[in-house]
Design a protein around this nucleic acid. Sequence first.
RNA 1: CCGCCCUUAGCUCAGACUGGUAGAGCAGUCGACUGUAGAUCGACUUGUCCCCCGUUCAAAUCGGGGAGGGCGGACCA
Length: 346
Amino acid sequence: MDTADRLDLVSRHTQEVVTEDELEGLFEDGDPSAYIGYAPTGEMHIGHFTTMRKLADFLRADVDVTVLIADLHAHLDDNKSPFDLLDARSEYYRVAIEGMIDAAGADPDDVEFVRGTDFQLDEEYTLEMYRMAAETTIARTQRAASEVVRESESPNLGGLIYPLMQTLDVKALDADIAYGGVDQRGIYMLSREILPDHGGHSPVCVFAPLLSGLSGGKMSASDAASKVNLTDSPDEVEEKIGQAYCPAGDVEDNGVLEYLNHLVFPVLDVEGEPFVVERPEEYGGDLTYESYEAVEEDFVSGELHPADLKPAVGTAISEVIDPVRERLLDRPELLAEAYPETYGDE
RNA sequence: CCGCCCUUAGCUCAGACUGGUAGAGCAGUCGACUGUAGAUCGACUUGUCCCCCGUUCAAAUCGGGGAGGGCGGACCA
């Protein structure tokens, strides 16, 4: 595979690459390494899946991929995960992520999994963190973390350590590329700025878009109706998609189309399957699409009505998450232990 | 270590002075209207009033104690 193809694979379905030139340089030098970090906090949903699916693109482009389960980060971010649940949530995240990679058509064994506490307590790492703390202002750190760390009236110190550690993770994992949602942009821009002063080098950054929630506007972790969980049953998925904000002809804030574009079609492509919309004869009969662009064209023109699109997308999403759902339902203890408040049977 | 302030619905808060066992906005649920959803109307729901003890016929409200949080002061050899 030549550099142009690799660039294309890595940058498709992304919002931004910082910078394209640097990325090209990495490919010309050989096989670069990339990492994505996830703080094991709340339950995973299709938003995570969409970001994770791209790992299949990285692998196809011969990029070495590491997934960091950032357990300490999950605790440092305003106690999103209680310290006692870090083990259970880390395990749940690992299994869920393996399932997503598998469902995306790649082999989970090709990805290296690392847990934050495996190396973040090393003396060298810790010492460098203190030195960073001495050299970085509170304001700079807050700005970097503002899109990631939970805003609170009385923020904890942990939220400020968070971006410094994330920066050191890049170095510790020896990653050429830092991949994540655009919400991570602030932190990685800080990393590019200060990591060279701390024995590392500025990572190339690849940012995935944050897709709209199903209620219109941004997806919200606290709004169950705005997202599809990986363990939602087919009925629940179709129900949620049916309830989704989806104005006819309008692509703006349209989660239904966005998930079709960034999640469903890439997976269908791997399987070589088209996207089929079943439609009553009364409205013109069934439709078959080979590309997202064709769907969008019909949607914008009014040829394809939301009421016909929704059930088709619901079914498609349900099928896409099915391998993940199966893995998780196969091991119900994972969720029960990770989220005892929700799934505990006591 | 000292002083002051805060804690009421999922969220933001009112009610406390002048005790009568709780309210608003937003959110949510359900209908109407749309071949979906939203918007818009219409209806509805929501609570260990942080915990304990006490006063009282009666405590979110008064008194005492405690917990959590915030702000300030003091200390600075």
